[in-house]
Design a protein around this nucleic acid. Structure first.
Lengths: 252, 252
DNA sequence: CCTACCCTGGCACTGGATGCCATACACCGG
DNA sequence: CCGGTGTATGGCATCCAGTGCCAGGGTAGG
């Protein structure tokens, strides 16, 4: 009994199978229709006040089947988010790009997943804001992406002990993504182009810091020094060297 | 009805009051004793199998009072973690240090909180690993720190639009902290000095990247150049500046 | 002593979640 | 055409977390 029995059920990555492809049963209510019905009830009556019985009735199925297919009430709200994660994880694993770029593209994919489906993601955001438990769940989804990104970076960047920098970079990507995502969720009517521009800016910031991190990584900190200078394109070269010289002097 | 009624209960920051100071009731079981009893039952019988009735009996109180004081079964497991957060948040708010240093010290305080109380934090880690729901909860706590750090940095670093970089820096601090924390949780028998050495290394990495981020912040990205130099500690300063000068020339 | 207040415990109830079993439908070999 | 198998479903019973309500008992203050 090393870490205790795994009696728990599911939460985020529940093992409820969903046969979205292949030959289905006779008159099976589509997952999306169930989600939409649930979202409508949640926003109308509140999350707590909405019962699984009510959702089942609205979706034209039995309470029992609802539990079987989604696992829990929360899982209905996050069902499509779960699918998105699966998609993104598969994309990442198959990407031939440079690791950092692959992760940035994956983050782009996540944002795209939100923007594409405001009918679900926007009401969900409102619900998440109002209910701490749902917020926890949303945060857990975010952490899941972060863990996947971190693992991916650690694996691809060379195995030995790069987990710290991989973790930091992954956290930066997620934080930057969330920054842009939240700004859109607060005002979904905003022009999509502006959102994507913000996303590019954010990812540029991440790229710069990531390069710093990956350059520093695993060097003996006492022996090496690291200098990072960021300066406008037109800066006078001599002035720049003076300031760098001062910084180096002070550091040593 | 803008964001829906707040009918939710609590989750992380529940409003259950705890009168740890002042004159208490006659034979009130201390919070810590309840937590220890619960942790014991959780690890012995599993989290799901342990009922609130059982915990109440083990703690010498009624089921009803247990709910009143802790809010939920999960909240018992994370009660002391909640207290830690309160402490850290207060410390941060009162800190006169430079913002980045204050946040690093706050992270140190969190790690200290874990190391100081392995009797609770280690079994909790095992439980969290085995149960997705508890893992979500742990992640939510982490996110709470991150949000507090981010807000603190955005407020102190100058209000205007620094939220992106503040978010990225906060995420980095948290990621680095968690990296060290997890390594200890996996092997709590390890020498504390080694843990703190790792923590210092991790925070050094964060400090460097953070300086990058905070320097870049909000500059027009197309006009900026980034220079990263890694060099042995004893390098001749003039030679270094010559090479940097050459690199800059070539870049522009 | 009486009252106001607070903590506690008992009781009942809602509803999420699970296990068990019977049913209905599709597929498949005979 | 028919019986067997596998699967999704629905109904039913049950467990238990969580909440509201109310009564009991202790303390502080008048």
């Amino acid at each position: 009994m090393d870490a205790g029995p795994v009696e728990g059920v599911s939460s985020v990555g529940n093992g409820v199978q969903e046969r979205s492809a292949g030959r289905n049963g006779p008159s099976r209510t589509a997952t999306r229709d169930v989600v939409l019905a649930a979202v409508r009830l949640f926003t109308e009556d509140g999350f707590e006040s909405t019962t699984m019985e009510g959702i089942a009735t609205a979706a034209g199925m039995s309470r029992r089947s609802l539990f079987r297919r989604f696992g829990s009430k929360e899982d209905i709200l996050f069902a499509e988010h779960d699918e998105l994660f699966t998609t993104v994880a598969a994309y990442l694993e198959a990407s031939p790009d440079e690791p950092l770029e692959a992760v940035c593209s994956a983050a782009r994919l996540v944002l795209q997943g939100y923007l594409r489906d405001p009918e679900v993601t926007v009401p969900r955001y409102r619900l998440v804001r109002a209910h701490p438990r749902l917020r926890d769940r949303e945060v857990a989804m975010t952490a899941r992406y972060q863990a996947a990104f971190s693992r991916f970076l650690a694996d691809r960047e060379g195995a030995e002990g790069r987990s710290l920098s991989a973790g930091v970079v992954a956290a930066s990507v997620i934080a930057a993504h969330n920054h842009v995502l939240r700004s859109w969720l607060r005002d979904p009517s905003e022009d999509g182009r502006r959102v994507w521009a913000r996303f590019d800016t954010a990812m540029d910031l991440v790229r710069r810091t990531a390069r710093t991190v990956l350059a520093v990584e695993e060097e003996p900190p006492s022996a090496d020094r690291v200098l990072v200078a960021v300066y406008p394109g037109g800066t006078d070269r001599e002035a720049l060297l003076r300031r760098i010289g001062a910084a180096v002097e002070q550091d040593s």
